[in-house]
Design a protein around this nucleic acid. Structure first.
Length: 427
DNA sequence: TCTGGGGTCCTAGGACCC
DNA sequence: TCTGGGGTCCTAGGACCC
């Protein structure tokens, strides 16, 4: 079968968080289900039934309480431990189909389908991927196939919407690309957000097909090189290659809104210490150390009846570090600089930037720390927390009462990662 | 009363240097 | 009225993604 030189499949899980909940509770099939963000704040995943009720993505939960009650919508706090584990299972299944896979987000991956022998059409192949993932993991996916990533995204979107496509759409078939571009609006293209979308509409460019046919200089002027690449992709010329192994992160952030407003400096310090602990684990997992540490504090920006204070401060560490205790020590000093009495704080966070590989850290001849010993302590800490029980070992600065902890009142059990929380089939 | 969290890339402009 | 021309590095802000 003749084949284009580049060929991508985008596999995307349908309503991923909702689907994860459904795998372990079949009674949720065919009824409206939604999943909330951290702190039960916003709606981040909706079943098709909820979408049909007109509830928008990202809406604050309290705004849709009425619809929820009237339609008996099942509501869940997000359970990232469960979703992360399910995600890994989906990707392991996809890896059976090609060695070249780019994990793009928790619920989608690009596959390189070019250059290997199949004894069936691309559509049939896509169907096989879909069926296998469903069978092995319980998660329904959609598959979009095309010559470039941007086109594969468009294919996937249409595959989800069109009942005839039934979850799989191959845009390399004669005439399909043209029709798909005609049917897709510019603001639904991957890489066109609200801003650029509006500017294009103002110029009379409404469909993806019109954008494809735009003059190169015009698009460069409006959207820079990013826009030029995007238009080329729409024309079928690959500009966005598959990223097989993700490069290490250049910065690591950990932040949370509090379950309730906080006024006490000590409590802020404990929360910040907990965020340091989370971020430092990520740092060590990618074998990086940080040169800069930023802490930020915020009041509730939605409360215009309350005084507002948002501020951030950064320290440069004398020696780049990945040591939780040391980072906590600096973070505490920053909080002392930053904190002002008399505000109701709603959120805090830490950012680590200027990351360097830990084995290339420039040491300081006046550095008194025994870094070799410290790193062994951290290794032991990570081992216990990852192998035995998350949070089993903590640094005391994180506090034990944690009144700032976020709300998650509707969380389901960790069916797949905790022995105590396995599904009980006899119940 | 209740409003998520974590990233990336690109560009423009300033500081600084020769 | 004239007031170089490049180059690099850094930062802030914009725009986008899931």
């Amino acid at each position: 079968m003749p084949q284009p030189e580049s060929l991508f499949a985008l596999v995307d899980c349908n309503n991923f968080y909702v689907s994860c909940e459904r795998v372990f509770n079949p009674q949720l099939e065919n009824v409206p289900v939604m999943v909330l963000s951290n702190n039960d704040g916003c709606i981040v995943a909706r079943s098709n039934e909820v979408k049909a009720l007109g509830v928008p993505m990202g809406e604050p939960f309290f705004k849709s309480k009425e619809i929820v009650e009237k339609n008996n919508v099942r509501v869940f706090s997000s359970n990232y431990t469960l979703y992360g584990d399910m995600s890994a299972r989906v990707f392991a299944t996809l890896a059976q189909f090609t060695p070249e896979i780019e994990i793009y987000s928790i619920d989608e991956a690009f596959l390189n389908l070019s250059g290997f022998d199949r004894h069936c059409s691309l559509t049939e192949y896509g169907r096989r991927i879909r069926q296998t993932v469903k069978q092995w993991t319980g998660i329904p996916v959609s598959v979009g196939i095309a010559e470039t990533k941007v086109l594969a995204k468009i294919a996937n979107r249409l595959a989800k919407r069109s009942p005839r496509a039934d979850g799989v759409l191959d845009l390399t078939r004669p005439g399909y690309r043209e029709k798909a571009l005609e049917k897709t609006n510019v603001w639904d293209i991957w890489g066109i957000g609200r801003r650029h979308g509006q500017r294009l509409i103002d110029k009379g460019i409404i469909t993806a097909r019109q954008l494809r046919d735009i003059d190169d200089n015009a698009i460069r002027k409006q959207m820079g090189v990013v826009g030029v690449r995007l238009v080329y992709e729409l024309r079928g010329t690959t500009c966005l290659p598959l990223e097989l192994c993700p490069p290490p992160k250049k910065g690591i952030t950990s932040s949370r809104s509090f379950g309730r407003a906080i006024t006490d400096k000590q409590e802020i310090k404990e929360a910040v210490a907990a965020y340091i602990s989370t971020a430092a684990v990520k740092l060590r997992n990618q074998h990086s150390s940080t040169r800069y540490l930023t802490v930020f504090l915020m009041t509730n920006r939605f409360r215009d009846d309350e005084p507002q204070y948002n501020n951030a401060a950064t320290v440069e560490l004398p020696v780049a570090s990945d040591n939780t205790e040391e980072l906590m020590h600096y973070a505490e000093q920053v909080v002392d600089r930053l904190f002002k009495q008399g505000y109701r704080y709603k959120k805090a966070g830490v950012m680590m930037t200027g990351l360097v590989p830990t084995d290339q850290v420039q040491t300081d001849i006046f550095d008194g720390a025994d870094r070799n010993h410290d790193s062994k302590v951290m290794q032991a800490l990570d081992l216990v927390n990852s192998q035995i029980k998350k949070g089993a070992l903590q640094i005391a600065a994180q506090g034990s009462t944690q009144p700032w902890r976020m709300k998650c009142e509707k969380r389901t059990p960790n069916y797949t990662t905790s022995w105590k929380e396995l599904v009980n089939v006899r119940a």
